[in-house]
Simulated assay, not measured.
Amino acid sequence: MNSNIVAGPRRSRATIMEEVAKVLRATDASTNIEAAISRSRVSMQEVADTFGGKRELLLAMVSELSDAMSASLSTDPTQPELRTRLIEYGQCVADIYATSHLRSLYRIAITESIRHTGLGRDFYDVGPGRLTQRLADFFKAAQASGELRRADPQLLASHFLSLLRANVDMVEFCPRELAADVFAVVDVFCDGVNGEHRHVEPA
């Protein structure tokens, strides 16, 4: 048990996740969730009592970030224009990817999925898979409203997120540079998908 843990009222799920997230953001090199927990103010018993285990904690943490990155997609798909909504979404995803503990969670999942059968699939389902699916649903709604040319929304979502991640990975975090990269990605995506057609009638 961690020697720096002070007994007290039972902490919430959100508090426990944030305590572990602080460690992951500080080290940025963790490949083991148990090691991250041991360096936090959280005990393995707390994790077991609250989440069921360290695996469930890992999945809960990536699920929380996926929900945060997808939050802007819950707005009305007809207002404002598609490009503006994609910029807002792209900036949110890029900010979280560049400044949060998400990269550490990815490294941990890759390392631990070798030892734990099914972890890689479960991590994908609540992490990158959920992020891609929610963007695909958004693109499907945009196609139905005539804002986006007909194409496989799943492929469009994967393409957009790949462009976004590639640009974020290429630069050190700087809010101004990151915003410029997001604008560039959205322009490349919209021009590539719609070309000169900024609005098309639904099929």
Rank of each mutant, 00 (worst) to 15 (best):
E18K: 08
E18Q: 13
V20W: 02
A21R: 07
K22T: 03
K22F: 06
L24A: 13
L24K: 09
L24V: 06
R25K: 13
R25H: 05
A26E: 10
T27E: 03
D28Y: 14
A29Y: 13
A29W: 13
A29F: 14
A29R: 15
A29L: 15
T31N: 15
A35W: 04
A35Y: 02
A35M: 06
A36P: 00
A36W: 08
I37N: 04
I37D: 03
I37F: 01
S38K: 02
R39N: 10
R39T: 02
R41S: 08
S43H: 09
M44V: 11
Q45R: 15
Q45F: 10
E46N: 04
E46F: 06
V47K: 00
V47N: 00
A48I: 07
A48F: 00
A48N: 08
A48V: 09
T50C: 04
T50M: 04
T50I: 04
F51R: 04
F51C: 07
F51Y: 03
F51W: 03
G52E: 05
K54P: 01
L57D: 05
L58N: 08
L59H: 09
V62W: 06
E64P: 01
E64Q: 13
L65N: 05
L65F: 06
L65W: 05
L65H: 07
S66W: 01
D67C: 07
D67S: 12
D67P: 00
A68I: 10
M69K: 11
M69S: 08
S70E: 10
A71R: 07
A71V: 09
L73N: 02
L73A: 05
S74I: 06
T75G: 10
D76V: 07
D76M: 08
P77H: 14
P77V: 14
P77I: 15
Q79F: 02
E81L: 13
L82Q: 12
R83P: 00
R83F: 02
R83Q: 03
T84N: 09
T84H: 13
R85T: 04
L86A: 03
I87G: 07
I87M: 02
I87P: 01
E88L: 04
E88P: 03
E88Y: 00
E88R: 07
Y89T: 08
Y89D: 07
G90I: 04
G90S: 07
G90M: 10
Q91Y: 01
Q91D: 12
Q91T: 05
C92K: 15
C92G: 12
V93K: 13
V93T: 08
A94F: 14
A94R: 12
D95S: 03
D95V: 05
D95L: 08
D95Y: 14
I96L: 15
I96R: 13
Y97P: 11
A98Y: 00
A98T: 07
Y106M: 12
A109H: 03
